[in-house]
Design a protein around this nucleic acid. Structure first.
Length: 787
DNA sequence: AGCACGCCGACT
DNA sequence: GTCGGCGTGCTC
């Protein structure tokens, strides 16, 4: 019988296509192959091989591509990702199969040279210098040799032509040297050392000789209910991860869908299941040093470690710290790594030669063969969310990959996300806490400035108490940071004559004045116009008035107050781009500045050892945005910002300007009682009928005609019939928006239950009214956020 | 992702 | 009359 291969193609296709396997080929699952698709040739991955009589009607596989096949765990991750995110399988595959693109192939073979032993025909002074350096007979790069000898490259070239030096192709520079887990032991505090011991003990649970593990033993069902969606429902009718009374064996039984057979998540080999561990440490507690020890331990065991970072751009400092501890810089991975290098890292990872990778979210799909640990640094960061194409949250996918590979996952954060906190509380994740700062340093003392009683003067935005604090700080030779999460000069501009407010023509937001650029800019869509001299509405000349402060306006006020101090404004639109911004951050860290005025960009990344005062100019921003995560986000941001103070020798303090000092978020910051905040926030969400976390999927209804979109959406909403435990929010909660010329809104579906969302949504569409005219209904999913 | 098909606006 | 815009649909 002819052999047929089911091949998944990295395109937005939901299922594998079947091809005939020619007799000359033997294909195995996971092989990367070339196949005809329509008029062209593409690559794909063998997802299944079977015998079938109909094989002869199919187009044949062109051939196998000589790259390492996609291993089972990675294929399983692809399947899982597609299923959970409602993305086409092919799109999920594309994440794991970024082959080097042809254009980037520009392979530069480096040339190495060494002395051939022949004397040069014309021994000039320059040539002799080169030869004396090369006399040791070692192979060097051409430019390295020229530099060492202090001559130009042309002298070396001349000697090659002459035959006195021989040129050889140089093996490409290694992508990463092996890290040495015992290179330099950084001194740890007792709290850190204890955390390291706990962490390593948890990472490798002792096989319990067949005894059942207790729930708390890090069964770490990722809180994602996607495993065995549908199938699970049929078996139990209830989400397995919400029933903490199940034994391990029972959980295994329900959590592993039959259809996936031996590709079961977790340890099928008798090893205890590796846990997910939340490593929570206050700012400045030295979490990095703690998980570095876990990485070292992993490397000593001959296994690979992956450290995920939210933004690779901020990690130069991090890589140096890594090098201090391990002697070399680790391999790094992010979307900017291209072509040849990309392929070499992939190959090195696949061969097990690269022991540690530090990377952005896409590093999750590298073909590790011996993965022993995944660390997700700053796990609460929103940058872990992929919002385009396949929607996924890298932290959650890390947990999933950890389960598939049965390796521990460490989630590190000073301000964990609510869902991770909940998982830790419910025993799905283990929890290690570092409650104190490293080196006996104290957390900054945080006080509120009640703006109702402590009013700034008219036209001013700094409360007198804050100004005094800045003055004191500078007098002591320290730095102050004024934090305001608003770029530009003023968030709103209006005409004093006619009252006209300048609004974006695409969005419904106010245009932000940027005095530096002399422009009005929309922070939503990027639309910008020149700041008019006269009102565009009534024509009155020179009568526009800025309302509210942005960092530029604060800088104006601070400059007037402290004319002889060095002041810098740091925001993401910093003139000169990321490069100069990095340089400026360095300057600030070295103390080359007295007052920093910054947006959220200053909340993370660089350490400022001279900073002892943080003034938050508007602690209430973001508390009223309507985003269900507003409180959580604000708490995290302000905790991070205020935590910048007192990281050096001297203790720090923070002052929060607020109109609502009794707001739970502000109160939690003042008391330092994060615990209470998390509890209250979880309770508040439950009271509002929102799960503390969960999956959010949507039907997106869109049409060019507003009324048509609305009518169809209403009809669909009526047809919803959500199953038990699923919440459907109609158009009222997800307002109509104009996106690229189409009116669209989402019918939101929220659930924490393990149901087959995809089937439910498809079924819902089928039950709903027939689509007439220019209306489209699409399925979308956002596993984590509400907006 | 490509590449074709197809249905409405301005042009040698 | 056609050239070409990009919306829609298909590729085993």
């Amino acid at each position: 019988m002819p052999s047929v291969a089911d091949i998944l193609i990295p395109l937005a296709l939901d299922s594998a296509y079947s091809y005939a396997v020619p007799a000359r080929l033997t294909l195995a699952v996971g092989d990367v192959v070339q196949i005809p698709l329509g008029p062209r040739e593409t690559v794909g991955v063998v997802w299944g091989v079977r015998e079938s009589p109909s094989g002869s009607n199919l187009r044949p596989v062109t051939g196998r591509i000589e790259v390492p096949p996609l291993a089972g765990p990675l294929r399983e991750l692809v399947d899982w990702l597609a299923r959970y995110t409602l993305a086409p399988k092919g799109s999920a595959l594309a994440m794991a199969l970024r082959l080097p693109d042809e254009a980037a192939q520009g392979e530069t073979v480096r040339i190495g040279v060494r002395a051939s032993g022949k004397a040069p025909a014309r021994p000039t002074a320059a040539r002799l210098k080169v030869l004396s350096v090369a006399a040791d007979g070692t192979l060097r790069g051409k430019s390295a040799l020229a530099k060492e000898a202090g001559v130009s490259l042309s002298v070396v070239d001349g000697l090659i032509d002459d035959g006195a030096l021989e040129a050889l192709a140089l093996a490409p520079e290694p992508v990463a040297l092996p890290p040495d887990p015992d290179h330099a032991r950084v001194p740890l505090s007792e709290a850190q050392a204890q955390a390291v011991r706990d962490l390593i003990a948890l990472m490798y649970p002792v096989p319990a000789g067949g005894a059942a593990l207790s729930l708390a033993d890090g069964l770490g069902s990722p809180h994602l209910p996607g495993e065995g969606q549908g199938e699970v429902c049929e078996i139990s009718g209830e989400a397995p991860h919400l029933t903490p009374t199940l034994s391990v064996q029972e959980r295994e039984a329900v959590a592993v869908p039959e259809a996936q057979g031996k590709l079961a998540v977790g340890a099928g080999d008798g090893r205890p299941r590796a846990p997910t561990i939340l490593l929570e440490g206050v700012t400045g507690s030295g979490k990095t040093e703690v998980y570095f020890e876990a990485v070292a331990d992993c490397v000593r065991r001959g296994r690979q470690a992956l450290i995920l970072m939210p933004e690779i751009a901020l990690t130069a400092q991090f890589l140096d710290r890594f090098a201090e501890r391990f002697g070399v810089r680790p391999a790094t991975w992010h979307s900017g790594i291209g072509g040849k290098r990309r392929e070499r890292i992939r190959a090195g990872v696949a061969a097990g030669e690269i022991a540690v990778v530090v990377g952005a979210r896409s590093a999750l799909f590298l073909p590790f063969t011996e993965l022993g640990l995944i660390v997700v640094d700053e796990e609460h960061e929103a940058a872990y969310k992929q919002e385009d194409g396949v929607h996924y949250h890298a932290r959650d996918m890390a947990v999933v990959r950890g389960r598939i590979e049965n390796c521990p996952v460490v989630l590190a954060s000073a301000t964990p996300s609510l869902e991770t906190r909940v998982n830790a509380e419910r025993g799905r994740y283990r929890h290690i806490v570092l409650p104190e700062r490293f080196g006996g340093r104290r957390l900054p003392d945080i006080k509120a400035l009640d703006m109702r009683s402590d009013k700034p003067e008219r036209g001013s935005f700094l409360a007198p108490v804050l100004v005094t604090a800045v003055r004191e700080t500078l007098a002591e030779g320290n730095q102050a940071l004024l934090f305001l999460n608003r770029r530009g000069y003023a968030p709103l501009t209006l005409c004093r004559a006619c009252g006209h407010r300048y609004q974006c023509r695409n969005c419904s937001t106010w245009l932000v004045e940027h005095r530096f650029r002399k422009a009005l800019v929309c922070h939503q869509c990027g639309y910008a116009e020149r700041r008019p001299e006269a009102c565009t509405e009534c024509g009155t000349f020179d009568n526009l008035t800025p309302c509210g402060p942005g960092v530029e306006r604060i800088a104006e006020e601070v400059t007037a107050l402290f004319p002889d101090k060095r002041i810098i404004v740091l925001s993401s639109d910093f003139p000169g781009g990321a490069e100069r911004l990095r340089a400026e951050l360095q300057t600030v860290a070295e103390g080359g500045c007295d007052i920093v005025i910054g947006t959220q960009l200053v909340a993370k990344g660089h350490n400022f050892p001279h900073l002892t005062l943080v003034g938050v100019l508007d602690a209430d921003i973001g508390l009223t945005s309507g985003d269900p995560r507003a409180a959580e986000r604000t708490f995290q941001l302000l905790q991070q910002v205020t935590g910048r103070a007192g990281r050096g020798e001297k203790p720090g303090r923070a002052l929060l300007q607020t109109y609502q000092p009794d707001h739970p978020v502000i109160a939690a910051l003042l008391s330092g009682d994060a615990e209470r905040f998390y509890e209250e926030e979880i309770a508040a969400r439950e009271a509002a009928g929102l799960p503390p976390f969960g999956r959010l999927a949507a039907l997106i209804v869109s049409a060019t005609d507003r009324a048509v979109a609305e009518a169809h959406g209403q009809a669909l909403a009526r047809a919803a019939e959500p199953p038990e435990g699923v919440m459907v929010l109609g158009p009222a909660e997800a307002p109509l928006a104009l996106v690229r010329g189409r009116y669209r809104f989402r019918l939101l579906v929220k659930t924490e239950r393990a149901i087959d969302l995809q089937s439910y949504l498809r079924d819902w569409i089928a039950r709903g009214p027939k689509v007439r005219g220019n209306v489209k209904v699409a399925i979308d999913v956002d596993p984590q956020s509400f907006l």
